[in-house]
């Protein structure tokens, strides 16, 4: 019986599930337990004896959580939108080239992605300073765009490659100009890769710390949520930080669960797998 499930597997499954779930559990305990049960104890208990919303409510009153979250939202949508704006034409063009040239371009884009974030962020922030883009939503978005652009181009190129070759020619023979062929025939067919590229860009931007930290560092109300959260953590405000972390994490959990079937190794490792 080759398909019989070995009961030992449940031990491994349980151990792994516990390991990966535990950090969420800690966040939950800190956010929803009264402090006398968390920071008040030398060794905090692992199960909630009491649940309260006081921490969350107080945190929202004490520190500005919505401001940084709204900024993160703005930045993430600009990054996702700009990624498509640059990535769709690039993916289309590169898909049309011979494999030899297109692979070189993709490889080039990914080599760029290997540049250390901090090394690039530092001179960029100096350019942005002279262009008055420091501490702005646009500045952070433009810097983060670098992180997401190669993967976006790669995913969208894959989408165009998977279309039948004659499709575009047939549409063109019918007399449609390139722009309307693009909008009416091609784009709807690659809506899934476009969606994946947008979601991944959005999530990357939502989580990104290094570029945001260097480009918009100083005032917490001026920065995105990861930078503001860092600020609260270093100011030793664990309750506010926990509330912040919780509120900021809920949307990505929803996104990952909803789009889980699209999260595949070959997309995420970007181009390096055949």
């Amino acid at each position: 019986m080759p398909n019989k499930t070995n009961p030992l597997i449940y031990i491994v499954v349980l151990a792994l599930a516990l390991l990966f779930f535990y950090p969420f559990w800690v966040l939950f305990l800190i956010a929803f337990e009264p402090t006398k049960l968390t920071f008040g104890l030398i060794y905090p208990l692992q199960f909630p004896l009491e649940i309260t919303l006081t921490n969350i409510v107080n945190s929202f009153n004490q520190v500005d959580l919505l401001g940084p979250l709204m900024r993160s939202l703005e930045v993430a949508f600009i990054v996702g939108g700009l990624a498509l704006l640059l990535g769709i034409p690039a993916g289309y063009g590169i898909a049309k080239l011979t494999a030899r040239i297109s692979n070189k371009i993709i490889a080039f884009l990914f080599i760029i992605n290997m540049m250390p974030g901090l090394v690039i962020a530092i001179p960029i922030s100096l350019y942005f300073y002279s262009a008055h883009l420091e501490n702005t939503v646009l500045g952070v978005a433009l810097a983060q765009e670098l992180v997401v652009l190669p993967l976006t181009v790669f995913i969208i190129m894959g989408g165009f490659r998977s279309l039948p070759r004659d499709l575009e020619n047939q549409a063109r023979v019918d007399g449609a100009p390139l722009s309307s062929t693009f909008a009416r025939v091609l784009l709807p067919l690659i809506r899934v890769p476009i969606l994946i590229a947008f979601i991944l860009s959005w999530m990357t931007s939502w989580d990104e710390f290094t570029y945001a930290f260097i480009v918009a560092p100083i005032v917490p109300t001026d920065s995105t949520f990861p930078v503001a959260l860092y600020n609260y953590v270093t100011r030793d405000l664990p309750l506010q930080s926990a509330t912040f972390a919780l509120v900021a994490t809920v949307p990505v959990i929803v996104l990952v669960v909803v789009f889980q079937k699209y999260l595949k190794g070959q997309y995420l490792s970007g181009g390096l797998i055949g």
């Binding site: 792994l16 959260l229 669960v257």
Partner: peptide, 18 residues
């Protein structure tokens, strides 16, 4: 698979804090 994949979306700074 949901439990082990979800942390993929977690912000590094949230993970560092936890």
């Amino acid at each position: 698979s949901s439990i082990v994949i979800i942390p993929f979306g977690i912000s590094t700074i949230v993970s560092a804090f936890i």
